[in-house]
Simulated assay, not measured.
Amino acid sequence: MGGNRDFTGRVVVVTGAARGLGALLARGIARRGGRVALLGLEPDELARTAGECGNGARWWEADVTDDAALAAVAREVAEHFGRIDVVIANAGIATGGPVEHSDPRTFNRVVEVNLLGSVATARAFVPALRESKGYFFQVASLAALCAAPMMAAYAASKAGAEAFAHSLRAELAHHGVGVGIGYLSWTDTDMVRGADRNEALRRMRAGLPFPANRTYPLEPTVDRLLDGVAARRPHVYGQRWLPAMQAARALLPAVITRHARRVMAGHERDWLAAGAETGLVGAGGAAADAGRGASGGTAARAGG
């Protein structure tokens, strides 16, 4: 594979790389000739993904909200590979439900991982990207363009991550470092499948206007994201219709509020009747929840 879709000779760091989108991004980069450093919270999954990547891939167990651990990992990655060309800030978790009934610790954890985790990732790896004149890629979401009810924590964190990446792009442009933002709609990941296990969330999502009510396959989404990363684009879209949402984003809050006024009472009743589940969704959310008690530590574990 040649041209601007190629990663040959480039070292790419991927956070949240143990499963789902992060793991597929890492495998795709390796197939396109890149060498990958995988970061995450699940050592067994990280080791499995690194083994599938080959090409000298290595993994580090680290919490993206732990600044000291990330700084140590950044030094180790740079020492091991000799350079860092691309950093993909993909780590993310989610919860759902009305804000009134949300668990404060879980709500805050979503913002901490999705927004402050991206800030910590940039802070740790930007020095290496300045040396290589590299590229930082922030995985955002349709939720950054179009905030839906019962998704306040996730939407706020992704909108914040998008704004952070815009600021970072302006700060780093004179150093020759590019910054891109990735947008994707509901994609077939553990996170989305975990959310769909909650009947109220599943119905809410199914009731969204087309095409936002569909779940999209991972592989073509990953291919589009990787094409954009390889080309160092400022905006990258996992589904072809998302640029239209970007263009219409000033109108979307009013449209969504009008839609929610008709349907939200039913969604809220469903949510409360189902037991008002306030935990993190999916296997990645379970791993983040398990790691919450250790988030004050600074150790990062490397693997093979």
Rank of each mutant, 00 (worst) to 15 (best):
E52D: 10
V12T: 15
P43W: 06
N114E: 09
H80G: 03
R48N: 04
G303C: 12
A143R: 11
Y216V: 01
T257S: 11
W241E: 09
R292Q: 12
A122V: 10
M264D: 07
V139Q: 04
R32L: 08
D44R: 08
A294M: 01
V73F: 13
A57T: 00
S132F: 09
Q138N: 15
W60R: 00
A195T: 03
P211V: 10
M1A: 06
W271N: 01
A212I: 08
L46N: 02
M151K: 08
L46S: 04
L145D: 12
L116Q: 12
E162A: 12
A170C: 05
A273K: 15
A148Q: 14
A17H: 07
R32W: 04
S167G: 15
R214Y: 10
V192C: 12
R262S: 13
R105V: 14
S167Y: 07
R249C: 10
R301D: 08
M191V: 09
Y237H: 13
E42G: 00
R240P: 06
L218N: 00
F136Q: 11
A17M: 08
G178T: 04
A57H: 02
V87K: 10
G297A: 12
G284Q: 06
T298K: 13
P217C: 07
P253T: 10
R31P: 05
S295R: 15
V119M: 09
M191Y: 06
H235N: 11
C146E: 09
P253E: 13
H235L: 15
D66E: 12
H101T: 14
V113Q: 04
R193V: 01
R232M: 05
P209F: 11
H235K: 02
P211E: 08
R169E: 09
A286Y: 02
L168M: 12
E171K: 02
F210K: 08
T8F: 05
M264L: 15
R83S: 14
K133I: 02
E100K: 11
E268A: 06
P209R: 07
R27Y: 09
R83P: 10
A299C: 04
E42I: 00
R233W: 08
T221W: 09
A26R: 03
E199R: 15
I256D: 11
A206N: 14
R75L: 10
S141P: 10
A50S: 00
S295K: 02
A30T: 03
M1G: 07
P98R: 12
V263F: 11
D85L: 04
Y154A: 05
V36R: 04
L208N: 14
A122I: 04
T278D: 10
A300E: 12
L129Y: 14
I88K: 00
A212P: 00
G51M: 00
Q239V: 04
S141G: 11
K158I: 11
A288Y: 04
R35C: 06
V64S: 03
V77N: 05
G20K: 05
R249Y: 07
G285Q: 03
E76P: 00
P211F: 13
G207Q: 13
G296T: 02
M204F: 13
Y183E: 03
T65F: 01
E112K: 06
A72M: 09
R193N: 09
A299H: 11
G296M: 01
W271V: 01
R233H: 09
A122N: 13
R205M: 12
A156P: 02
T215D: 01
A23F: 07
N213S: 06
L226P: 02
V179D: 13
E79L: 11
L115Q: 08
E100M: 07
L24N: 09
L115M: 05
C53R: 00
Q239E: 15
G194M: 05
A18D: 15
